[in-house]
Design a protein around this nucleic acid. Sequence first.
DNA 1: AAAGGCATCAACCGCGACAGT
DNA 2: GACTGTCGCGGTTGATGCCTT
Length: 249
Amino acid sequence: MRTPSGQMSTGLKKGSWSLEEDQKLVSYINRYGIWNWSHMPRFAGLSRSGKSCRLRWMNYLKPNVKRGNFSKEEEEIILHSHSLLGNRWSAIAARLPGRTDNEIKNYWHTHLKKRGTYNLVHQTTNPNDSDISSTFESSDIKNTQCEQVNHVKDIIVTQSSMTFEDEASSSSTITTSSIEQEGDIKDNHYDIGSPGTVEDLQWFWNQLCPIENLERGNNYQDPFSDSFFQDSFHDSISLYCLYNHEFGI
DNA sequence: AAAGGCATCAACCGCGACAGT
DNA sequence: GACTGTCGCGGTTGATGCCTT
């Protein structure tokens, strides 16, 4: 890792953090909390930039930061999320409690990037795992599910206003005119509830992921274009919530 | 054992978004 | 609207350890 590279011209230290610096930062934050990253280092007795302190805290010192190897489940979530969100590491990190965007980004570049897609991993590491793929054995089921996803797409595309609350929260709130017409809505909001289990999300991701859909064959229509996913508005969890509401999956 | 290449990952940097003045 | 300060994000760097020759 980076070695302590002495003092900058500004008098700020760069490079790896020492144990003493870590202790200073942790004890200061535990005592006074985080109030201003720019000014905090001086009060904490650190010759570091605010940015450096923030990064150190967020990626290493924060109590709930999870260390160690990624589990298989985490790996799959990263692959799925990346197929949907691209290099939006913070958004991906939001799906993995305890993991930081930096850690996920590093893990992607060092372990997952070369694998390409979730499907490749799924096939190579779970040759006998048929729980998800078996869902698509019947073309009728495929078509029905594809139609359902398309229905969700249509709703989204035709909405003039639609907002999602913080995806990390346990519930999502949607404001849409068509849902309001169909559901029991109060105050123009519809509480969808929990997005569901990991398995539910995996299934839904399978529905949405354009790369996987293409790999399933020409008769399986890609419900969304690539450009659709480039819009950060169309978050996968939120889409799943909407789908869940529409079809009660 | 030594040298060179490669992989890993903590940390840095630049930029954009946002809020306050 | 312009300016300034702060924060967060994503891309990149570079020191270290491991592996191969």
